[in-house]
């Protein structure tokens, strides 16, 4: 922040509160998309509609595992950081980013597979599938950017409250994306 900005209130709970509100907003965005999915679904006699190509469930399960693991690693690192373990946090951060990139790679494979199976955008189920997963993936990319933003700071000696606040905010966002993915996974692949 420049000196003429942020004249007040950079304490970590303030920033965190802002992030909570923003995440609530994002939550409503995904909730609205999922509501659309549900409302379109209940109008069809069978779901996915007859003639829909099969979904690569194995890939999706692997993907879910990867993203869940990344969240676990990040929260482990955050706890260590709370007790002064900056080295551990630094490692955890790198692992989280790596797992996030793996997730994106697997998503790409997933889209390739569905595309190869003939699931197109004009198909009602396909359209919903791509909108949901693309919207989520776009946020994962943003989340990765935010995690990368933490990397230079995590090397430095001093770890002031401002950096602590950033870690809390980014972690919240990342865990949120994890939860959104799990809900999507259940909605699309399981039920």
């Amino acid at each position: 922040m420049t000196s003429n900005g942020s004249p007040a209130g950079e304490d970590r709970w303030t920033s965190y509160l802002g992030m909570v509100v923003a995440v609530a907003s994002w939550g409503m965005l995904f909730a609205a998309l999922l509501l659309s999915y549900v409302l379109l679904r209940v109008q069809q006699p069978v779901w996915p509609p007859l003639g829909s190509p099969p979904l690569p469930l194995g890939l999706a399960v692997a993907n879910t595992a990867v993203l869940l693991l990344s969240s676990v690693v990040l929260s482990w690192g955050g706890r260590k950081l709370g007790r002064g373990g900056r080295e551990e946090f630094h490692v955890a951060l790198q692992w989280t980013i790596a797992l996030g990139i793996v997730f994106l790679g697997l998503q790409l494979r997933l889209w390739q597979a569905t595309h190869a199976n003939g699931l197109g955008l004009t198909h009602i189920f396909g359209g919903m599938f791509y909108v949901l997963t693309w919207a989520h993936a776009a946020h994962i990319v943003a989340g990765l950017g935010a995690l990368l933003w933490l990397v230079p700071g995590s090397r430095q000696r001093t770890y002031g409250p401002e950096r602590r606040a950033r870690v809390m905010m980014v972690s919240l966002f990342w865990h949120f994306l994890d939860v959104v993915w799990v809900v999507m996974f259940v909605a699309i692949f399981v039920v």
Partner: peptide, 17 residues
């Protein structure tokens, strides 16, 4: 605004698609 504008945003995403 924080809670309900995202809903129109979702509608606009779908309409855009």
């Amino acid at each position: 605004n924080a809670l309900f504008v995202p809903v129109i945003a979702a509608a606009m995403v779908l309409l855009f698609f």
